[in-house]
């Protein structure tokens, strides 16, 4: 029914989409691991990253290496500011207060972007050497797609090594285990939380660049759906776990592409609906995800 090249092509698409989801999900999952907070504004940092990239490309004609690095830094910076201004005053507040604040922060950034950047979608054109296509029979992909996948793999490996091997990484894992105990061990918890936000937002910033390069079109609300899907991805993988977030991202990428690619085209309008159906199913069957541990609660 489906030819082999078609299947391979869908496979490649899924890997590219999955890479982007994985990068966004990592930041979301790491922050949740430490603060038990879903940062709704995470998707909006992706949007900020994309816009930064756009301005660097069009206004300053910056070389692409810089266009990759600066949005990362800007994203990281915004993440730190959001943490400092909105979340730190609420360290001891109930979970619902955090939830509502993070929702409001996301709304704030989106609407500020509308005000400053206009709600009009913009075209995002990447340098020609990146948009060059390779054809192998019926399969085709562009240079940017290769870059997305390679960059994701590199970032994930570096981050994993960082978290596993360095002293700061160990401190991060300790803080995720228990904030109070880490505090007693002499870890500066506030700095660690800030660093976690910075790293997560850094990845979101670069994911925004990738997202924009892949779809060629950006708008102030572009972060909303990827943010939600990253949440679904990290739930699938087991929220709070780094390999879980990566796995979840790729699984979601595959699920989504295969849903669109192999089911009747009338259903493709419900693509986003399908993602949430998946979320509900996962939450019903295995709420702690694939790699996650069930959360214990002390009474």
């Amino acid at each position: 029914m489906f030819s082999l090249p078609y299947v391979l092509q869908q496979f490649i698409n899924a890997i590219i989409l999955g890479s982007i989801y994985a990068l966004v999900a990592i930041g979301l999952s790491m922050v949740y691991g430490i603060l038990r907070l879903i940062n709704f504004a995470h998707g909006d940092i992706l949007m900020i990253g994309a816009y930064t990239g756009l301005f660097l490309l069009t206004l300053y004609k910056a070389p692409f290496a810089i266009v990759l690095i600066v949005p990362m830094l800007v994203g990281g910076l915004i993440g730190v500011i959001v943490e400092r201004v909105a979340y730190r005053p609420l360290r001891k507040a109930p979970e619902v207060a955090l939830l509502i604040t993070s929702l409001a922060v996301s709304m704030f950034i989106e609407n500020l972007a509308i005000m400053v950047l206009s709600p009009r979608p913009r075209r995002f054109r990447i340098p020609s050497f990146l948009s060059k296509s390779h054809f192998y029979g019926a399969i085709n992909f562009r240079n940017i797609d290769i870059l997305i996948v390679i960059l994701t793999v590199v970032l994930v490996v570096v981050l994993t090594l960082f978290v596993k091997k360095t002293k700061i990484g160990i401190a991060m894992r300790a803080t995720a285990e228990s904030i109070n105990t880490s505090y007693l061990m002499g870890i500066n918890v506030n700095n660690i939380i800030m660093l976690t936000f910075a790293i997560g937002s850094l990845l979101a910033g670069v994911a925004g660049m990738m997202f924009a390069s892949k779809y060629g079109r950006i708008e102030p609300f572009m972060g909303f759906l990827p943010g939600l899907k990253a949440f679904v991805a990290s739930v699938i993988g087991g929220i709070g776990s780094l390999p879980g977030a990566v796995m979840g991202g790729y699984l979601l990428g595959f699920a989504e592409i295969f849903f669109v690619g192999f089911l009747p085209p009338q259903l493709s309008g419900y693509r986003d609906g399908f993602v949430f159906l998946l979320l509900i199913i996962v939450l019903l069957i295995r709420p702690s995800g694939i790699f996650g541990q069930a959360e214990k609660r002390e009474v």
Binding site: I38, V96, V232, G273, F276, L283
Partner: peptide, 24 residues
């Protein structure tokens, strides 16, 4: 019914999905 055991973020995100699904 499907959100019976959910609290906090899981619940909120599922309700976002529900709202979007109805709108869609």
């Amino acid at each position: 019914l499907p959100t019976m055991g959910m609290k906090g973020y899981y619940f909120s995100l599922t309700t976002i999905a529900f709202g979007l699904a109805v709108e869609l």
